[in-house]
Design a protein around this nucleic acid. Structure first.
Lengths: 208, 208
DNA sequence: ACCCGATCTCAACGCGCGTTGAAAACCTTT
DNA sequence: AAAGGTTTTCAACGCGCGTTGAGATCGGGT
């Protein structure tokens, strides 16, 4: 019975017990580490360690780090349909406020780390900027603007992007006070009118 | 004469001719590469190659990459005094316009590469964010706001930062159209009123 | 004119990265 | 129960990184 005792915690070689979805575990670990450290900072070894498997599994299941990144990043932490619905649900004259509240609601939760990592990924990896543009402009603001029926929709969308992205940069990445500690209501009061004007107001040279 | 011909282009060992300021050459090369590729992308070998010297010179003159970075980055590519003067030179009711024009004037020149690299450096190196905050808020906007005499100056400064940084992100890093190709006047017309309000207008909850 | 220190190249070190191939352990099929 | 394919760990490779020490070369002080 006792015979030669198995070294219990020593990782045995070969196939593990069934029911362990290594692929999914790697994807989860990769998303978390990409968010924490960005593309270059999230090493294959660290991802595999967090997933509790060997680094070679990344190549076995995805073919390489690049491909794993491709699969992991494209699953954004927000549900586009829900966001659009939340933004459009209410009177048009307060849509700016709802955008700011939704934006802060999504990113404040992670303490800003998620947004910072997204920015890090954008600068390290050109493809991410394309994906973001697709999502931000075409998926989100295109629908919002379609329901508002204004001219220069594309320009208005990018202007909204400047203000929203800017708030994210200063609040989550640069961490300039007092905006980091500012209440949501304070930010809303200041920024919402800007979005309101970009979406529905006059954005051309003001007459006299 | 012909004897043993010296291999002319082969780098000779030992001390070079006098008058070659290796330290300054390294600093210049480092600034250029940090701007082009960010902190992690600017390798010691590449910096030394651009300066035309060996990589070991970085350690000899600065003690390491980190210290070289510290000296190189603190010399920003803009002259604070000139910027402040240019922004303040004119009527207060058009200060928003002057800020946007100055900002685009500084960064449009490099085709956006310099701004993108700055962002890359910020996300790769926490210290840069601190330096930027010092420069942006305390050196620039503190003086601007001091001359305007308004309440909540710190909050107003960070709000301006959100809009200005946001324009830079969308125009230079994310490259969302149509803002990338937009004329300066178009951007000014849309964004200047926002800065005008952040600096001099009402940023609290609007009365009903 | 000599020497000593400052300056510079070269070769190599150790590290961590992404990746690869072989061998071990497990599961499924027959 | 034997066979065969799938999953997994392990060991090692090649690369580029920042850094180091030895030695060659030049310049300035005496």
């Amino acid at each position: 019975m006792t015979g030669a005792v198995e070294q219990g915690d020593r990782k045995r070689r070969g196939r593990r017990a069934a029911g362990q979805d290594t692929r999914a575990a790697l994807l989860t670990a990769a998303r978390a580490l990409f968010v924490e450290r960005g593309y270059e900072g999230a090493t294959v070894r660290a991802i595999a360690a967090r997933a509790g498997v060997d680094a070679a599994m990344v190549n076995h299941w995805f073919g390489g780090k690049e491909a794993l990144f491709g699969e992991a990043v494209l699953q954004l932490p927000v549900d586009p349909a829900a966001v659009v619905e939340r933004v459009l649900d209410g009177p048009p004259e307060r849509i700016g406020e709802r955008i700011v509240r939704t934006f802060l609601g999504v990113w404040d939760d992670s303490g800003g780390g998620a947004f910072a990592a997204l920015v890090r990924s954008v600068t390290a990896h050109d493809e991410v900027a394309r994906v973001l543009q697709e999502f931000f402009l075409h998926t989100l603001f295109a629908r919002v603007l379609a329901s508002l029926d204004v001219d220069q929709a594309d320009l208005r969308a990018t202007l909204c992007a400047t203000q929203v992205v800017g708030v994210g940069m200063v609040r989550y990445v640069l961490r300039f006070e007092p905006l980091v500690s500012a209440e949501v209501d304070t930010v809303v009061a200041a920024v919402a009118p800007t979005l309101q004007r970009y979406l529905l107001g006059d954005i051309s040279a003001e007459p006299g």
